[in-house]
Structures are given as structure tokens and as C-alpha cells.
Write a protein that binds this DNA or RNA. Structure first.
Lengths: 157, 157
DNA sequence: CTCGTTGGTTCAATGATTGAACTATAATAA
DNA sequence: TTATTATAGTTCAATCATTGAACCAACGAG
């Protein structure tokens, strides 16, 4: 597919990948811990980890030898994905919150405040909303699968 | 599952839902247009749309009668998801870009600038990074499926 | 020399997804 | 009148992904 979203989803667009990235970020980095934490079946975990490695989001490293044991780490691309996942978590928190309250809270080291992640425009610093953004086709925009109708419509608008 | 991310993913955590939300946002709102644009099979589109309606992300509205024809619209929850999807698109653009360049560009109506969506801390306005955030369990944090190990680890840290 | 720990693999059963063909309603054109 | 087109789906068989449970292998500790 042509669009950045679809290509992003090709890398991490299944049910488990975002949860795996979150767990690795939070320090749950070993096979058996991931199985226990997420309740994912072991063979699927193997496949998902391999796919994420292929896609450059995580890497597998030995943390000891004799016997060799491995853990999984986020790559730069993986770490770069973490804020996006936090924004999604925040959305989940707003629209699908359990009665007990937020299961997770974020604190920003830099400023020391507890905060809720927000997607903003870096030019003016304001939070963006669906009705304050105009989307237009870029140099790579084409009418392929995933943007057949969208590409036409963006060009018209 | 307990965590906000997992509950968010329960609402839109499959391959097609983010693409559907994006298309609805961009004005591709009709069944046949969605099929054409995304190349999704028709029966699956039916099921995904129904699921998104059940989950409160979109709604189905007649846009004409004789014959009655329907289109799909984002609800408030759906519109609130759009910035998150833009952030994910931006990530896809950074890490899985095609040689042709960005397929899509965003302009902020409010300030008039072309921009790349960024996830920030609203307290200090800075972009957040995986290493400048501390995650801690909130009032609803519990050691259930999806946070078995994570909950323990967060409490310790 | 057996047990526990870690990091997997294998396999059968189930569920999701695909692709193609088909249906229904009404407006419009010949 | 009848044929055609547009929209919004449904149905069905085949394939693919996911689940759950059991099994395997390397090594260290008791």
C-alpha cells in the first residue's frame, strides 16, 4: 500500500505488536515474561517477535551465555513509536476507561509534571484536532490500493 | 484486559479500523468507496463497520431516501482518534517511507503551517520521548491479563 | 542424575479474512 | 416496458492466523 499509515500498520498493525512494544518499553523484555504478562500463545509470540525484528522495531540480544539467554529490546524506530502508543493509550483511557480509574499515569521527567500525552502542531504548539487540520497529497501520493479514492479526493479539495 | 492500551486496541486494534477511520476523516464515507479505496472485502467491511459502530467510534446515517442510502461518520470518539492516527502516520512516514516521498502532508488551519504531528507533554509543551517519561500505575492498575508482570514492575520502579 | 529455568517448537482445533458471486431497491435511459 | 446503472450490502467456499496444550533442549543447582 502507498499510504504512510498503511505502511506503518504493516510494521505494527496487529493486535499484539503495540502491546509488545509497550511491554518492552516498560522493561518486560523476556520471552516467558511476555507470555505471562500478555497471555499470548508461545508460538504466536515467536512469530510476532520475528516479524518485529524483520521490520526493524525490536532486536534480540543475548543477556547472558552458558546457557545463552535472550531478551528483546526496542530499536530507535521502536523507541520512536512509544510516544504514539502513549497517545493511543490516552485515547483508550478517555473513551474506554474502566470504573476503577486510569490504570497508568505518565510523568514527564523533563518538567516533573504528571501529564496526558497530546498530539500537537510543533509550529504553533497547539493540540491538533480533526477539524483544524488539512490533509493534502504529498510528492509520494498516488492512486494505489489504500488511496485510490482518497488521492483523488485530496487533490480535488 | 486491564490496560488502557489494550482496551483501546479492542476498539480499533485490527488492521482495517485505523484505515477506515482515516478514510472517513478524509471524506470517503460510503460503502462502495471504502471497498474501492482500501481493497477490503465487502463482507469484512460490513463486519468492521458494525464493530466500530458498536464501539462508539463511528455511526451510520442515511444521506438520502428513495432509495435509502447510508454513509458512515466519525463520532466524537472517532474524531478524537484522528490526531493519534496522524501521529502514527507520521511514524510510518519516518520509518517506512517509500522513495517517492511523503504521500500525505498536514497543514494546521489555526497557524497556517505545514507540520509533522508530534506527541507532547501539555504541561511543558515539549515533545515526549521514551526516555523522558516515567510510567506509574494509576488507581485502576491491577495485575490482570495484559499487566501481570507490568503492574508488579511499575510498582517496584 | 533429577529438577527447575528459560526460550522456544510442534500440532490439532478454531476463528478470521479473502475473493468471487449473488441479492435487493430504486432511479434513469432506450 | 424493459434494460441498465448505482448503492449497499449477503452468502459461501477456501485459505490464513490464532489459540491452547504438549513437548523439546541447554544448562545450572541441589
Amino acid at each position: 500500500m502507498q499510504c504512510s499509515l498503511a505502511r506503518g500498520l504493516e510494521l505494527i498493525g496487529d493486535w499484539w505488536s503495540p502491546l509488545l512494544v509497550r511491554d518492552l518499553y516498560l522493561g518486560v523484555t523476556r520471552f516467558d515474561d511476555l507470555v505471562e504478562d500478555l497471555g499470548i500463545s508461545r508460538n504466536l509470540l515467536t512469530r510476532r517477535l520475528q516479524a518485529l525484528i524483520r521490520n526493524g522495531v525490536i532486536e534480540r540480544m543475548a543477556y547472558q551465555s552458558r546457557p545463552t539467554r535472550y531478551e528483546y529490546r526496542l530499536t530507535e524506530a521502536g523507541r520512536d513509536l512509544v510516544p504514539v502508543i502513549m497517545a493511543l493509550t490516552e485515547w483508550g483511557d478517555r473513551w474506554a476507561q474502566p470504573k476503577e480509574g486510569s490504570p497508568i499515569l505518565f510523568t514527564h521527567k523533563t518538567c516533573g509534571h504528571r501529564f496526558r500525552p497530546q498530539v500537537t502542531c510543533p509550529e504553533c504548539g497547539e493540540a491538533i484536532r480533526s477539524d483544524t487540520v488539512i490533509a493534502r497529497p504529498g510528492p509520494g501520493g498516488a492512486a494505489k490500493r489504500g488511496t485510490m479514492v482518497v488521492a483523488k479526493r485530496l487533490r480535488r479539495a
